[in-house]
Design a protein around this nucleic acid. Sequence first.
DNA 1: GTTATTGTGGAGGCATACCTCCGCTATTGC
DNA 2: GCAATAGCGGAGGTATGCCTCCACAATAAC
Lengths: 197, 197
Amino acid sequence: MTERTITGTGSADVVRRPHRADARRNFDALLVAAREAFAQHGTGASLEDIARRAGVGIGTLYRNFPTRQDLFDAVYVDDVEGLRREAEKVAGLPPWEALVTWLRRFVGYVATKAAISEALNRESAMFRSCRDIMYGAGEPLFARAQEAGDARADISFDDVLRLVGGITGASFVDDEQRERVLGIALDGVRARPAGAV
Amino acid sequence: MTERTITGTGSADVVRRPHRADARRNFDALLVAAREAFAQHGTGASLEDIARRAGVGIGTLYRNFPTRQDLFDAVYVDDVEGLRREAEKVAGLPPWEALVTWLRRFVGYVATKAAISEALNRESAMFRSCRDIMYGAGEPLFARAQEAGDARADISFDDVLRLVGGITGASFVDDEQRERVLGIALDGVRARPAGAV
DNA sequence: GTTATTGTGGAGGCATACCTCCGCTATTGC
DNA sequence: GCAATAGCGGAGGTATGCCTCCACAATAAC
């Protein structure tokens, strides 16, 4: 009963968008509210609160998203899809710049921050599929940066993603500091000219 | 009513340890259970579950720690105290090694991981005091590494702490990966021989 | 051993979240 | 316009957590 269908092409049709106009409005409002709530309170955000924020009854929430997971997935898949699109956008940039730009998007973009690290580990068809998409998007950028001699050769893309994921989940005084700290981390990813211990 | 006494000498007497023998046993069992629960479920761990784990009634928990904050503080103060002691231990090492060793302890030691990032921001007398202790312990190590030319001069200790704090909160496949990722981050903190963009 | 006191633990009241169910309403197709 | 129907929303049952209160038990003092 835990299995769900994920479209192979990567489109986010995990749950069906309703046909009727009012239903579609509610569906969208729920997604917006859920994204906000998950970003604010993490995976455990109150579903009743989400329904309230969306201005719909709790019953409507459950009809559209029978389980918490269904709702979370819908938001999460959107985020991951967004990251995939971002990867395409930066494809034209020089290797290192492309990687850095994408990773910055990664930190800024993802609303489901609180669950990122969980998602990297979680064993479920859905999470695995999203992780694949994320890797499919980012790993080539990293490999290209490595081949160009810009990124260290002795680490994996998974390492980088978890490093940046950690920063995504951390808290900062302001955006400026977050950028600075991300910069420090990226310096660690960057290849050294010579070799220092 | 939110004010609490923190002993200036740094001992963790935020709440009084009881005098009677059985009471002391329960007190200690609660601390152990709470450390475990907070590490596992974050700040929001169920107090009733903690009492159960400790094998005491919920009433006993509340008598010793009237609020959730009191219980959390007791665990947190212990952790911070531990970090302070670690800082003294590494004082004899060379600058960079001392900093790195301490930061590694930071990642491994702290049981109240989930609240670290929150604690760095939270405005409360208790958190502020602990942050001061933490800074008092780590900042000199960082300053020394900067003066020795080992750590970058253009970043602050706060930046480093948040960077490492993020890694502390992230999840990893195994300890080896966490060490490796921390290594990447520390490379970013390290001063460069020349100057590369 | 006896008594005074300190501490115990869980029953129970309150709040909140989850989820189901069904009488009512809005939309759509004609 | 009108019927058919897809969708609505919240009442309410269940579970769980928070916290208080007090009859009872363990300990300490003598």
